[in-house]
Simulated assay, not measured.
Amino acid sequence: MGENSITMPADKAPNLVGVIVTWRAITHQGLTRSQNEDAHWVTHVVESKTDTESSSRYIFAVADGLGGHRGGAIASRMALKAIKEEFHTWHGGEADRMISRAMQNANQNIFCVAQSDPELFQKMQTTLTIVALDNDSLVVGHVGDCRLYRMRDDRIDQLTRDHTMASDMLQMHLITSQQASAHPGRHQLTRSVGGDPFMNADITRHETQAGDTYLLCSDGLWSELTEEEIRSALQEHDTSQECEKLVRLALSRGAPDNITGIMFHIDIVGKQAALPFSWRSLLGKG
């Protein structure tokens, strides 16, 4: 798709409050799995607040299903359905409450379906990580072992904590970080969506800055990469090319699991003239 722009007279161009983001999302079945139990969703809304002001909001989400050939794929897609339903009633503000409701609804829906036919949907669960960008804040809802990385000023930070046996042992200082990286419980979940009638989700808020680059991904991607490889990709601003590069690296190493990665770069934060603008950025074409 070519890059197109729309120009309006300056006195009629609304101010845009929020963020402008460039993003790329890729999912792959992997090289050994018979189907892709990962699911992801990206959406962007510009909503008019007044005659002279509009707000910009984004949602990025990744779910990694588990619990059998059929159940995992159903669970991950049910989780995203709950997010979409909640998002369509959200008009900005209190993103933490919106995310909390979406995650709790996802948990209840998946748990009830799993209980309705335990033989067919045995241990049907999913991980789920949601990122909401609203105005100058980024809110994260997280259960499981998908990860959100942020690159800012040449520093990489992991903004989520794995809910796994190895990570829990590391938090309790029972093992070192080096031992955790090779621990047999590295992928053994201690929290999931749909595993129990009540779920404890991590919900955190972070301030955004222009120039930030993020990677939201399932464990099928990050487990095949080194932190230095992720750092190198996030230091570049071509989100499309770098996201593809990370997926190719994982595939070159055998990709035993499904792979999903969403990379996004914060171009603008705050109040800006919304037009002229590039549909290429709004549509996530890096």
Rank of each mutant, 00 (worst) to 15 (best):
T213E: 01
L215H: 03
I230C: 14
G141T: 14
L251S: 10
A201Y: 01
D212W: 03
Q108K: 10
I175L: 06
S252L: 14
L148A: 06
R205Q: 14
G220I: 15
L148P: 02
D145G: 03
T127E: 02
V143I: 13
V131H: 08
T126N: 07
L215W: 09
C243T: 12
S218W: 07
A132T: 12
Q179K: 08
G185Q: 02
A210S: 13
L251G: 06
G211M: 12
M172F: 11
A233K: 03
H163S: 05
S192H: 11
V193T: 08
R186F: 06
R186H: 04
R155F: 13
M124R: 05
Q158M: 13
S240A: 09
G220S: 14
L120F: 11
K123I: 00
C146Q: 05
I110L: 06
R150A: 11
I110K: 00
A166I: 03
T204V: 08
L225N: 06
N109T: 14
F198D: 07
L251H: 07
W222C: 07
C112V: 06
Q115V: 01
N109Y: 15
T160C: 01
L189P: 05
Q125M: 15
R155I: 13
F198R: 05
D154T: 05
L174F: 05
S252T: 11
L138H: 03
S167V: 00
L216I: 01
Q115M: 11
A132I: 15
Q188N: 00
M169H: 10
L189D: 10
D162W: 03
L221H: 05
L120I: 15
L128H: 02
R248V: 13
L170N: 00
Q171S: 14
A201H: 01
R205P: 00
E229W: 02
R231W: 14
G194W: 02
S181H: 04
R231S: 15
Q122E: 12
C243Q: 02
H183G: 01
A201R: 06
Q179H: 12
D154P: 00
S177R: 14
Y149A: 12
L159P: 08
G185P: 09
S177G: 02
I156E: 13
Y214D: 03
E227W: 09
V140N: 02
D157I: 04
